[in-house]
């Protein structure tokens, strides 16, 4: 048994060294969306751990979201520079009565006004093709996430914990529509790549 324990410790050391090297020598660009599951993990470790990036730099000319342009079920995406998440740094979904879901790693998920979707250089509004009834179902389901845990490491198939993009994706999955391009991690970039029509774009292109 002591041999097994010593062997495990050496194994851990080797695995840690390999993982660190794999993440450190990442050739990708911070603003280029990572494509597959492994690349996203590598991107996240490289820019999040070794470059110290997080949710992105607060915009010096933040875009204001025009709540009148939004419909229930719309997906809002925000872009900031130096985001660890890829080209797009945050996503949320529009609820009934023009409210949105807000997310914070220390507070969880709660219902807020569109004004809380702030501090971005650019904001995109996606409107997946659906009937008004479907949009109502999506928005009502998303509103039930008030109080849910916001967990950045939520498994894509976990029905009880959510990232920002996963909350939007799972809400649309309630009516059988996947707004992402089907990749493993439902990130903001995956929502953009999903091909839903862009109905509004505020801020610099």
């Amino acid at each position: 048994m002591p041999f097994l324990i010593r062997f495990s410790a050496v194994l851990l050391l080797i695995a840690f060294t390999v993982l660190t090297g794999w993440a450190w020598f990442f050739p990708g660009d911070q603003a280029r969306p990572p494509r597959d599951a492994g690349e996203y993990v590598r991107h996240y470790l490289h820019f999040g751990v070794f470059r110290g990036l997080s949710a992105g730099r607060w915009s010096v000319r933040p875009v204001t979201v025009d709540a009148r342009a939004l419909q229930p079920g719309d997906i809002l995406l925000g872009r900031r520079t130096e985001s660890v998440h890829g080209a797009w740094s945050h996503a949320t979904i529009v609820l009934p009565e023009g409210r949105i879901l807000a997310h914070h790693s220390l507070k969880g998920i709660w219902i807020a006004t569109p004004a809380e979707f702030a501090g971005y250089d650019e904001v995109l509004v996606l409107r997946p093709k659906a009937t008004p009834e479907q949009r109502a179902v999506v928005a009502a389901w998303a509103a039930r996430l008030d109080g849910a845990e916001f967990e950045l490491i939520a498994h894509p198939n976990d029905r009880r914990r959510f990232t920002c993009s996963k909350a939007a994706r799972d809400a649309w999955l309630q009516v059988g529509i996947d707004p992402t391009d089907g990749r493993f991690w439902p990130t903001p970039d995956a929502l953009v790549a999903g091909g839903a029509p862009v109905v509004e774009r505020w801020g610099k292109p």
């Binding site: 002591p2 097994l4 324990i5 010593r6 495990s8 410790a9 050496v10 194994l11 851990l12 050391l13 695995a15």
Partner: peptide, 18 residues
């Protein structure tokens, strides 16, 4: 003497936990 020691034991427990 049969015990693996502090660092090896900690490494083993970390590996199992991860």
């Amino acid at each position: 003497g049969a015990h693996a020691g502090v660092f090896a034991t900690a490494g083993f427990l970390i590996l199992v936990q991860l």
